Simulated assay, not measured.
Amino acid sequence: MASVALGAGAASAQDASGVENARKFLEPYLAKPAFTAPGEPFDAKACAAGKKMLSIPNSSANPFLKGIIDRMKKVGDELGLEVVEWENQGQPSQWVQGFEFAIRDGFDIIDLISGIDPGTVAPQVRAAKEAGVKVMTSHFYDPSFDQHPDVSSSLTIGFNEVGKILANWAIANTDGKANILTIVSREVPPTIPLTAGIDEMLAANCPDCRIVQEINVGVTEWATKIQPAVQAALQANPDINVIIPIYDSMSQFVVPATRLTGKVGQVKVATFNGTPFVLDFIAQGLVDMNIGESLDWIAYATVDGHLRDACGMESPTALNVPFYIFDKDNVADAGTPAQFDTGYGDAYVAGFRTLWGLDQ
């Protein structure tokens, strides 16, 4: 059957429909997040008593992860759960040492937070399991991932959903004319579903939008490679009008590149995590959008899920921490300077305290 070319009017209507679909997709993420209980009430203090959790981030240099762990320590203090960070510089040999420390020092839980693939430390995960230490992940797996067989439980996060938000924001804020530069770290597994979400929404809502270039930089090389790569990309592709650094701590190296190339205000920057210095960039007009998550909310949800598992209860399969879009219209709600947990409301605090029997 012969193909039929769309007329200009039909194509224009299709483009407008895609942009409208993108705007509608974003609406729920512009509303203040609401708390949903992740499970049945339980006596969290009785469960936590005498227990220890070692949290191993993929790198302690990441302020987002550092902020979550600091808040888990505070939540743990109130419940009687000792939370310790295994500080590292993103080297697998250091992660291995963390496992050895947890096993040797009688920890109950090892929390692999946001970036460490259990498969890269599989012998250590197995050794911990055999020693009676439960290995759990948080803020790492997308719901589409298969959990490592030796991991006790996983609190997933919708990385694919994040990618869809980023793509639809780019579509809506360029009126369907997005020429995108993405900055990714493909050795971090959540990158795969996140970038798939971007591709899916571009195909669905804006076939004429395109990713002009992808810059793939390993986490330990962000500080040295992102800025020159972004500068080169902007100079070689003057039609780029959106930059998506998929993890917002990358933005500290993107902003100098847009400044040096004279692209501040001309190229929109959209990202994910809600790290305060990036929210300050929004207030300063250097970044346009950040999909935020309350780090305190993540901390409460992580402690909740891991305690449920450690005490033989069913653990949630997701963190259930809502995403919230910050832009120039609401970034002031995050504080001046911005704070990790400001702007999201505090419904989760009362929600978890009631769930744990602390306010009865």
Rank of each mutant, 00 (worst) to 15 (best):
S152P: 00
K52A: 06
T174P: 04
K32V: 11
E200A: 15
P228Q: 03
Q97R: 12
M201L: 10
A8E: 14
A233E: 01
E200Q: 14
N88M: 05
A172M: 04
L26Q: 06
I226S: 09
D341N: 15
V255M: 02
D150S: 12
F35I: 08
T258R: 03
E314Q: 12
K73H: 10
Q252S: 12
A44G: 03
A270K: 00
L279D: 04
D341W: 02
S60H: 10
M136F: 05
V230A: 07
A31F: 06
D111T: 05
L194G: 00
V96S: 10
L194N: 01
D175N: 15
V121N: 09
E85H: 03
E40Y: 07
Y300V: 14
P190E: 09
V267Y: 07
W95Y: 15
T342P: 04
V331E: 08
R308M: 05
G265W: 02
P245Q: 09
W86A: 08
A13R: 15
K66V: 14
Y141Q: 00
K164C: 00
F35Q: 04
Q14R: 12
P207W: 01
V84L: 03
M72Q: 15
I291H: 04
K66C: 04
A232H: 05
N237V: 12
G90W: 10
T174G: 05
A301S: 15
D248C: 09
V349N: 04
V349C: 04
D329A: 15
I171T: 09
D346C: 00
H306S: 01
I56Y: 03
R104T: 13
L166Q: 13
A34M: 09
D346L: 08
V83S: 05
V188H: 11
A283C: 00
A131T: 10
S251C: 15
N290C: 12
A44Q: 05
A332M: 08
C209Y: 08
A8W: 00
S294C: 09
A122D: 15
G115V: 03
R308C: 06
V321M: 01
R210A: 15
G106N: 14
